[in-house]
Design a protein around this nucleic acid. Structure first.
Lengths: 192, 192
DNA sequence: TTGTTTACATACAATCTGTATGTTTTTGAC
DNA sequence: GTCAAAAACATACAGATTGTATGTAAACAA
């Protein structure tokens, strides 16, 4: 019945992160109150403020966790391809799969930039999903040069917008097609 | 010394919108308290809740005002061009000009989606800047067909991301170049 | 075993939002 | 010009929320 301190900490933190994630998705960050979070996690506010500096810190923990999960899902699927273009297309599809259904678009693309600031949010993205995209683009467009960074950023934004649109009910097929056209156009144009 | 009711309303509303805009940019929506807003506007909370249903409604008024200003700036500049490509490039440049320096990126691209929801925010955008972009793309890419909508959405997202990056200190020239490459590649690819 | 640190729980102070109610100014009809 | 009604505020209040301070029990280290 007695748990070690490490176990206690781990379990409590995870319970808070899980409950927070569920409620942040359901109601948004601002509309989710800490008493509600701790009730869902089966602890008290004391535990929350013991493990996290404040409400925002709990949110940051949730976001970092989700970002890593998305990146892992993408790399698991795009690793099996070889040609750069196929890898990017597969990566895009894996990205949409990973973002759908868990309210991840709401968390990662809508709430996080506002709550954590665009810089912190962008930093988390850059470490995760965007890094995969940059690598793919570098392989597909060796002649990009100094424009690799801006293009990565712009296409990453396009991916994000597509995820939001699909989540909102738009035709996924149309957006995947549009992304493919964008990538192919880029390859066409830079090759000349 | 006596003002008509219309004048009173107009002046009070404008004072609240101005003060709100300044503080929302400075500290973000969630961190800006209504007592602070009304103090800056020189009125009381009674006036605020008389003219706006709640804090969010004031924010919405600020956002709609800014979105219109941005659209007006774009159309004023891109109207003088004739060729679709030149018009789009000029429109992009005008968009960046309009977004810089007043914290508009923070307001329109970061806070608005989180506070108003992505749908409401997208609706405001669609009525304004995105409509200009769609018209330009339709002229430049008559063969786009069903992909016009998705492409408009994706490119609009790319423009937004570029504005955020430039505001954060990135090289504007590089991003304008990347946008041009994206557009030209699209034209190249769809034409064949 | 015992003192100390860690992990929580409870109580509290400050603030904020939205509403309800009161007061002053404008307006429209006579 | 007067007067009732409505609009434009101002003030007071209730409920809820956040972060902190303080108290307690369990684990750990000596």
């Amino acid at each position: 019945m007695s748990r070690s301190n490490r176990e206690r900490t781990e379990q409590t933190r995870q319970a808070l992160i899980d409950a927070g994630r569920r409620l942040f998705v359901e109601k948004g960050y601002a509309e989710t109150a800490t008493p509600e979070i701790v009730a869902a996690a089966g602890v008290t506010r004391g535990a929350l403020y013991h493990h996290f500096e404040d409400k925002k810190a709990l949110f940051r923990a949730v976001i970092e966790c989700e970002a890593k999960a998305v990146t892992a899902a993408i790399e698991a699927r795009s690793a099996s391809y070889d040609a750069p273009r196929a890898m990017l297309i597969a990566g895009a599809s894996a990205y949409f799969d990973a973002m759908m259904g868990q309210g991840r678009t709401q968390l990662l693309l809508i709430e996080a930039p506002a709550v954590l600031g665009p810089l912190a949010s962008a930093a988390i993205d850059a470490e995760n999903a965007e890094a995969t995209l940059r690598a793919g683009l570098a392989a597909m467009l060796p002649e990009a040069g100094a424009m690799l960074e801006p293009l990565t950023s712009l296409l990453s934004a396009a991916f994000d917008r597509a995820a939001i649109a699909i989540e909102a009910g738009a035709e996924r097929r149309h957006y995947e097609q549009a992304i493919a056209v964008l990538l192919d156009g880029l390859a066409d144009h830079l090759r000349r």
